[in-house]
Amino acid sequence: MISYGQHRFPGKLFIVEGTDGSGKSTQLALLHQWLRSEGHTVFFSEWNSSPLVKDTSRRAKKRRLFTPTTFSLLHATDFADRTERDIIPPLKAGAIVLADRYIYTAFARDVARGCDRAWVREMYRFAVRPTVAFFFRAPLDVAIDRIVSGRPVLKHYEAGMDMGWTDDPEESFTIFQGKILEEYDRMVEEFDLTVIEATRSIEEQQREMRGIVSRHLKELK
């Protein structure tokens, strides 16, 4: 088994992370457009998208079967499938892989749910280390406003309602996102995340992102 940081592939892996509502998916979509228009072979991979795990995950959410541990393990299963199927083969082929959320999402969420920090990190040790991991940092109130105004109902696990902190979904979501943000902040140094201030304009953020990405693409051409 090849561990984090030890893979050597000709391709490049760029990932985006951040709390819900930080604007990271919008930024990644813009980056995707640009890379394609520049003539690169780009493969896009999304969190929670393994066809093998999808049915199990959907059923478990609907019937509320998860504990923090099984939530963590099933997401790791999903991520393993993405790694084996969507991430390693294109990287071997020399393509650019873009991932919306990566292992840091699991580290933040699972630890916010009470899982052991070291246990979760060890479980994901097989992950390919990204070329650049962008962390879109938005203050808690900004992120929460964007989510709550855009969506009428918060989902059970999304709001952290499984933790029983409070009966109010919005309050629960705020507590949960606060804990998640704390974990992200802790990871900036640990995993050398590239912080993008998500309060700036979309255009500014994208310009910065493209600048950083293009520095890693010279060797691809």
Binding site: M1, S50, P51, L52, V53, D55, T56, A60, L65, F66, T70, L73, L74, A76, T77, A80, D81, T83, E84, R85, M123, F126
Partner: peptide, 28 residues
């Protein structure tokens, strides 16, 4: 398991179940 039993059985019917994925599915 109620959670993953069916998913594992279905995954084993196909030909796309990778090694790491299988181990973590069992752990779930």
């Amino acid at each position: 398991s109620v959670l993953a039993g069916r998913g594992i059985k279905e995954a084993k019917l196909g030909h796309t179940l990778g090694r790491l994925t299988m181990q973590l599915f069992y752990a779930t």
